[in-house]
Amino acid sequence: MTEKPNKMQTNNLNFFYKDFHALYDINLPVRQNAVTALIGPSGCGKSTFLRTLNRMNDVINGSKAKGEVLLDGKNVYDADVDPVDLRKKVGMVFQKPNPFPMSIFDNLAYGPRIHGIKNRGRLNEIVENSLKDAALWDEVKDRLQQSAMGLSGGQQQRLVIARVLAVEPEVILMDEPASALDPISTSKLEDLIYQLKENYTIVIVTHNMQQAARVSDYTGFFLNGEMVEYDVTNTIFTAPRDKRTEDYITGRFG
């Protein structure tokens, strides 16, 4: 596989929740138009790390990041970076689908409206394209005015992804996006991730190692706040270099 350019890169990133040192010197490249998976046992810091990429941790009192998180070469923790603007570029999808209690259409138009788009025709266009890109259009096109809460879990998760797409992000962060979904919805979501990487850069945290193996191009293994190993996914799952990675992915941990 030819190495893709870095969309993001962390340099000696450390993270603290008050006195608790959660991440130690993480140096991880996020390659453009590729899927990077972060794996590791609960509490290893992978979700914390994911949230540093768009400063979602900022809202937690007493949290502090040290080191760099570069997006296109610019440190997102620089004083002149607007976190709201950053989160538009680096969108996020969570474990449990969180549609807003409003219509499917309004869920999707919400972001663009906040960013100042009022024109009805333009909004229609954004809603349709986002739903198509999220592979949900065919299932909901006749009921856009109905509540998003009536969708199935898998549809809700794709709706949330469509909502992220509606604000035209460059990077999409996914935190356990399939853990609440059944196998069919999971397959659809994985197919979607595969399609999305053509136009977006994706970082996904998952407990499901088979899922990481299936969807990602690169994988980082986290343990106790450190990144033990990072490599092409194929290598991580067939011949990892570090014994700790080997023990974790073969299920011989502890």
Partner: peptide, 9 residues
């Protein structure tokens, strides 16, 4: 068993 790494090899 979905073997990985050394088990897969």
């Amino acid at each position: 068993q979905q073997p990985m790494a050394r088990d897969l090899r």
